[in-house]
Amino acid sequence: MLEARLPQASILKKIVESVKDLVSQANFDCSDSGISFQAMDESNIALSSFLLRADGFDPYRCDRNLSLGIKFASLSKILKCAGNDDVVIIRYMDDADILSLVFESPNNERISEFDIKLLDIDSEYLSIPDQEFECKVKMSSSEFSRICRDLMTIGASVVIDATKEGVKFSATGDDGSGSVLLKQSGSIDNEGRGVVGTSVEMVEPVSLELSLKYLNNFTKAAPLSDSVAINMSNGIPVMFQFDVGDIGYIRYFLAPQIKD
């Protein structure tokens, strides 16, 4: 059986909102180390994944490895019934075909329970090797959202150029072109003002062209984290990571566009 109590429903709500438009259904893999998932979009261009470590739950119990097939549209609708500050308890009894979600209000005076039907999903699994990236950019997630939104008004794709100076996002379209340069700033710490600067750690300058449609989907994870890490190497898929506090992360991999 699985029983996992997450102190704040808002975390699960935000996670589901940030993947539901990219993936319609996927297996949640549960083990004694936590709950994870990975799935590609239908066109095999983007991979979404997340991990919530067992220590992010209190308590967490998973007796054996489970693969629970979930339809994201259903889970999203059910999670809308939870208050942001509700406690959510995820429960699965062995050999059942449903997953139970219990929402408890902060004062424990309102307890709601929803069951979601599980699916039998035969999904493809991508083996992503542990790799060292040539360039690691860390920047404000809200800044990242703004840049993707702004450049979408110009073109369908963005070129990300990372150099020692900083990181530049450029788009070109039929009506013109636009670019935003973020210079490296001294500290990426919040420094109590909620402002996250930009840092670029690099072995080599990297230049990649990516679809803005996908990047705009990834920005739905921005409410989970003040910062986003963009890990890039020339010519291979980019990894975007949004940390979920210190209990896990959401990662997206996006295949770059290739020059003919």
Binding site: N44, A46, L126, S127, P237, F253, A255, Q257, I258
Partner: peptide, 14 residues
């Protein structure tokens, strides 16, 4: 002109 790459051309699918 550029063409959209696919993840399965970079990673092993199982």
């Amino acid at each position: 002109q550029s063409q959209q790459g696919r993840l399965d051309s970079f990673f092993k699918v199982s």
